[in-house]
Nucleic acid binder design. Sequence first.
DNA 1: ATCCTCCCCTAC
DNA 2: TAAGGTAGGGGAGGAT
Length: 948
Amino acid sequence: MADEDHNGFSEWGGYFEAKKSKLEEQFAAASNPFRKSNLFDGISIFVNGLTNPTADELKRIMMVHGGTFHHYERSHTKFIIASNLPDVKVRKMDTSRIIAAQWVVDCVEQNRVLDYKPYLLYTNQKTTQPRLNFGKGKKNDSTLDNSTVAEETELDGILKELQQDVATSPKKHISHINNLSATTTSNHPNSSHSARTAVDPEFLNEFYKNSRLHHIATLGAGFKQYVCELRQAHGNKPFVKRGELRTLLVAGKLLSEDVSTKTPKRYVMHIDMDCFFVSVGLRSHPDLRGLPIAVTHSKGGTGATDVPVHPQANRQVERELFAQRFEQHLHDNVRADKVRYGFQKNMSLSEIASCSYEARAKGIRNGMFVGQALKLCPELKTIPYDFEGYREVAFALYNTVAQYTLNIEAVSCDEMFVDLTDVLQELQVDVMTFVTHLRQEVRDITACPCSAGVADNKLLARMATKLAKPNGQHLLQTEDAANYMATLALDVLPGVGSSITYKLNQAGLSNCADVQQVSLVRLEMLLGKKMAQTLYQNCRGIDPRPLVYEQQRKSISAEVNYGIRFSKYEELEKFLKQLSGEVHSRLIEIKRKAKSITLKLMVRAAEAPVETSKFMGHGICDNQTKSLLLKQSTDDLEFITQNVLKLMKESGFPPNELRGIGIHLSKLDDVVESKKENLIMNMFSKISEKQKDKSINIPIAIPIKEPLDMKAKSDSTNVLSLLKNAATRSKSNPAAAFKIANFFQVTATESSYSSSSPPPPPPMIHVASWADCFLNRSDLQPSTSKAGLARENKRLCRADQIVTKYMEELPQHMHPAIHQYITLNNKQKDVAPTVEQPEKQTNIFVNPNYKSLLATWVKTEAVPKPTDVNLIYLNICDLVLDNQMDKVYEIMKYFCCIVKTKRRNSCCWHMAYNEIESNIQEKVQEILDCHIYIREAIDCCKCQSFRS
DNA sequence: ATCCTCCCCTAC
DNA sequence: TAAGGTAGGGGAGGAT
Ligand SMILES: Nc1ccn([C@H]2C[C@H](O)[C@@H](COP(=O)(O)OP(=O)(O)OP(=O)(O)O)O2)c(=O)n1
Ligand SMILES: [Mg+2]
Ligand SMILES: [Mg+2]
Ligand SMILES: [Mg+2]
């Protein structure tokens, strides 16, 4: 609670504190004196939309009977009370908690907590998981929080702070604000179906929500970022936790005596959670401990051995094709078995994300199909995913380690390398004593076991972890390394998978001992230079790689190879646009720009059956990739989308043959140290820089120091007022107005071309389509024709150059939102030149373009200025007073949406929104004696935790 | 030589 | 039914 004053948070103290205490007081005052029973003790509800009794009434009932009323949905909200909800929204929700208001009434009437199931609104529920939101704070989970140290150290504070702000990938950010005038349209609660194929607009969300691989990838990337931020925030401060541990160890007489004389030795630790998903899952299924368990989407049991299979799917054929194509996989045990048994009739092809060690004893492995696993172990129990839980435990793991050292190389959400040399040096403690303590701490906090290996390089540390698992630790001495390695199979080496193992096997090498006997040259012939070098060293236990603490991202992508079934180009195009939006928002999230766009396609192999064995799977496919080098790096959605569509068209594949689509952005520009000082000023100066190296003579009107002047004058340096001033000023000061109008008219003309109309079609020269090259495999060497195509593309690029230049350059120097806003104001001024404006500034929302303005504000300001928040609030208030409730609703809805999508992790923005919203609610209450129903507020655990 | 594009491979 | 993503390393072969 005391850690809100980092990163400009404190600016928010006032707003935020006010809100917090108000809410708390409200509740405390309302709940205590009037309580009649404890009927709803421990039960919380959130009212979504219009209900009978009303939300207010339900709130009163809950309070009177000891329950909790949530003003917005939280992760731990027990029930959502609703009467009917729009279909679209229902799909995004966990319908198993949505019940009718009547339940509350009936409970009170009978004075007991009734079974809620008869009151479920949606009975054909799907158990979907919320899609990962990395930036969401820890939820108030007792297993995690109760056991953390009572006193909050400084690092602790930073940890908690940063935990909120790390990169995210939330997947449920559309605002749910009920229309004020909502005469709730007729909905069909039971028509709610899951999005089966990518044709359904909800598919992308639904898929990502449920994709384990998406979740672990996102988490992994998040933790790499997290480590960077922790390190940057930490500076040279001491690690408080080290001192505590030292005291503890002194008390227990566990410090090594002679250590001070030892030559400093390097200690690399590798730490990894044991069967991560399973361990997390078992926390809520304690009865299943000790049994063979798997985490999977499939329910398991008999259902999984008698799964419905599409009548036109042919598992036998697919199995054989797979065998032909991926011969090398048949020598990989897991995959070979997957082929041999997995494709048997009616066996579930759902993958096991993680299985318990009891299951492993029966031969079950991570990644195996459920059907096959059930053959190995018919009593295998399955448990569902708990993505939120993985996030929490992963944070706990990282945070625990981070309190001792930040020499951490993040590997994945359940795994990292740590250089312990420093800590050990300071603590003068034996390595394994330290590791024991650390692991115990992780276990205490997470209730999940982990294992750790220590050695003097990463490879051996990994090997040591393998030896240690499960729930153990191991120190691998370098002297023993070569001998130990000799006993190992090849594929246990990191970087050696089924293909390389296969190649080596073909060459007569079947384990590390064999490879140790082989010359470097021979390995090079087999595997290429780099792999040979690595393998040559690794099989001897040598690994010179340093730990990389701050990992710099090199690319970003979004890919879906599941549920891709299109019949028309329009469907495909719609999906491509969605997917472009997805990568784009990820790109924005990391605040970078990309210079290269790659479209990756999975296309049904000619021989492969149209219906895949795995439900909605990609089956056997050929992969194709096509990339485009931009003239300049971009983060413009429209531009990216257009290029993606262009690449797609070039590919020429029929939509119905596609089985997977991915968009990759690479050649990212350098990271900018976010000096969010005054973005708008940067924009102005960028324009003038551009001006210099451009030979076109655009009259530049705003001297760089103009905004500076404004800054000085208008006591607030915020974007909003700057924008407003720029606009107003143009009205009151004709000279300035001329200049500004002049300038923006020029740029606006160019940009309206670029943003509203698609680029002109390229000259119609025959270009061999990408698919042509691919489909007529027999005709041409693909490489030749591809090269030809590439050449062709480049030429076309050059032909478009002049137009393209504008299209690419303009949007990134000045945000279209901003010039549209300003231009519009100026245009209006031109059209109806000017009654002298009174002192009172015009309401921002009078401008038809207010949405852009809002969006720009949210996007450009890392931390919203109180002045701006106030301004927005006052402006909306005006509308309320003016009884323009439709507009108020519209604004709030949009604002909420923007904050949620653009500022997922920024609690100061969440609070800004909440602040405005609650104040507006009050105003509405006061003036109109009614309430704007908001279905879902900003959904962020961190903010919530402040209030509870 | 060195770069680039289009792959393939691996890991979680 | 099922949710087969994502990032990085690196090789082959052509362009420069
Ligand atoms: N094919 C795979 C491999 C892993 N994972 C997920 C689930 C795992 O729990 C998590 C961590 O992967 P690990 O390789 O660390 O495997 P486990 O933690 O499950 O087991 P171990 O005890 O071997 O580390 O990643 C997955 O979804 N699919
Ligand atoms: Mg693990
Ligand atoms: Mg792991
Ligand atoms: Mg391996």
